[in-house]
Design a protein around this nucleic acid. Structure first.
Length: 500
RNA sequence: GGCGGCGUAGCCAAGUGGCUAAGGCAGCGGACUGCAAAUCCGUUAUUCACCGGUUCAAAUCCGGUCGCCGCCUCCA
């Protein structure tokens, strides 16, 4: 099935055709590592992770590059404030980012290059841009890109230079030929981290690193370039200008931009100070709950963050895991079963239909909320099947070696469970053992109630129930409820889980 | 000032020209249960911010009004 992607450059959905059949090259702007990752970062990289996984599931070989900006003004400022060496600061935050991504089950990119490891390439590119007349050095050791030298400047973000109010909010640098000109290379002040260059000691301007790294790993022209929608202008516009001015070739074919996480209807951002770090949130909910929350709205729309929304995501995830638990196949029976009766085929068709809907959703510009809908529908079907009375066997089952073969219902449940697992994994979800998931807390191990104690109380309650001492049984249940333990009595005995 | 997005049930959220407007959370009624919980069944938008228009047909297209948000400055 064809994949459609909304391309920010053309502002419409387009059928995706990779430059090389079967191979996809994708660059996503990474983080500037002057601080810990927050929920906004998590949203971006979880969204692109879903994109990454979907393209891989189509059998394509994806080369995914996501950089670290490990030198810039904010890093220098932060290091000066805290007295920490800037290299230690950036390394610490790279580690924090990496562990946050691991927790959120974000697959690593193929390559995760750092700006400071590509200084030579950056210097070469800046020099070449000067040689071609697209850039000019100015007093102070800076090199600026001349937007007037690139006729198509503004084509990505749909802006007209003349209409823009450069300098409306900050003073225009008098050294600039055009107010929109931007820094390629920034001369350093004494004591600042710096690299030698033909224009004196300095460091890369922000935009140039992405042009250099993307083209180094993916080639002059590649398939997809992504990032947060705040990067569309000026960052990505400048990348296009630099890259295409330099190579004369098209830069990226498809541009993908994700929407923001908001708090109280406002963008979550460092500058507004209204952000939550990933670590803060993971103290209160399981990483998978956060991941489900982040995928619960289409990646291009704003996503409102709140405790209530997070709680709802937790309850939804619980439902999915309960379905998975209901469908758990009996460990001691072979599931292979020829399913030929019309009722059995109907169940199979239903299960398949949900899987097809899932695919269609993901092929339609990575519509994860719709895909989640299909996953919930599959959970519904699974629960329904589990609640179904065991159909009478068409002919007597022949037990082999005393082992009862799986019934048709068990075989169907096994199929449903496999589909739940498979589709869940497509979104990076449902990878845990359902019972373990349902019996664990977000808090650090040891903080939750003791399972042995829970089991002991349940045993006491079971005895009380046998003795018809329901007052005692209910007292024990209340005690467990206070501990956050929820009981489920069934024909097989009493099961428990922790409240989400 | 320029550019762009959004407004769908109590809440979250798909759907962007044509089957009964997905799905989740919460609520209510029923089944199951000693009672619960989980699950299942039923129920909760004659209607998609508002007004007009196009069309055989619109939540979906066009025009206008109101409200909210983003980019144009570092930001995912």
């Amino acid at each position: 099935m064809p994949l459609f992607i909304y391309n920010s450059q053309t502002r419409q959905k387009e059928e995706f055709t990779p430059l090389t059949p079967g191979q996809v090259s994708m660059y996503v702007c990474g983080v500037t590592v002057y601080d810990e990752p927050h929920i906004g970062h998590a949203r971006c990289y979880v969204a692109f992770d879903a994109i990454h996984r979907h393209m891989r599931s189509k059998g394509w070989k994806v080369t995914y590059v996501r950089n670290f900006t490990d030198i810039d003004d904010k890093i220098i400022k932060r290091a000066n404030e805290t007295g920490e060496d800037w290299r230690e600061l950036t390394q610490r935050n790279i580690d924090a980012f990496t562990s946050a991504m691991e927790a959120l089950n974000v697959l690593p990119a193929t390559t995760e290059p750092r700006a400071t490891a590509h200084i030579q390439g950056i210097v070469d590119s800046v020099r070449a841009l000067i040689d071609k007349g697209h850039a000019y050095p100015v007093e102070g050791g800076d090199v600026l890109f001349a937007v007037d030298s690139f006729a198509e400047y503004g084509k990505l973000s749909g802006r007209d230079i003349d209409q823009m109010q450069a300098g409306a909010r900050i003073a225009v640098d008098q050294r600039k030929k055009n107010p929109m000109d931007f820094v390629l290379w920034k001369g350093s002040k004494p004591g600042e981290p710096s690299w030698d260059s033909p224009w004196g000691p300095g460091r890369p301007g922000w935009h140039i690193e992405c042009s250099v790294m993307s083209q180094e790993y993916l080639g002059t022209t590649f398939d997809i370039h992504g990032g947060g929608e705040d990067l569309l202008f000026p960052h990505h516009e400048n990348e296009v200008a630099q890259s295409e001015a330099l190579t004369g070739q098209p830069f990226a074919h498809y541009w993908i931009h994700n929407g923001f996480v908001r708090v109280n209807h406002e963008k979550m951002s460092k500058s507004l100070g209204n952000f939550f770090t990933v670590n803060d949130i993971l103290k209160t909910v399981k990483p998978e709950v956060l991941r489900l929350f982040l995928l619960s709205k289409h990646y291009r729309s704003p996503l409102d963050f709140s405790d209530a929304a997070l709680k709802e995501a937790g309850q939804g995830l619980e439902r999915l895991y309960i379905a998975l638990r209901e469908a758990a196949p009996p460990a001691d029976r072979p599931l292979k079963q020829r399913l030929t009766r019309p009722s059995e085929l109907e169940w199979m068709q239903q299960i398949d239909a949900h899987a097809e809907e899932f695919e269609a959703a993901m092929d339609d510009d990575f519509n994860t909320p719709r895909a989640l809908g299909a996953l919930f529908s599959l959970a519904k079907t699974t629960n329904k099947l589990a609640a179904e009375p065991e159909p009478a066997p068409e002919k007597p089952m022949l037990g082999k070696g005393g082992m009862k073969p799986a019934s048709a219902k068990e075989a169907l449940l096994g199929l449903a469970a496999a589909r739940l697992r498979h589709l869940g994994a497509r979104l990076g979800l449902l990878g845990e053992d359902p019972v373990e998931f349902l019996q664990s807390t977000a808090a650090a191990p040891g903080d939750g109630p003791d399972p042995d104690q829970i089991e002991a109380l349940i045993a006491q309650r079971t005895q009380a129930r046998k003795d018809k001492d329901f007052a005692a049984a209910d007292r024990i249940r209340d005690e467990l409820t206070d501990m956050g333990v929820l009981l489920e009595d069934g024909p097989e005995g009493t099961r428990w889980r922790l409240a989400e």
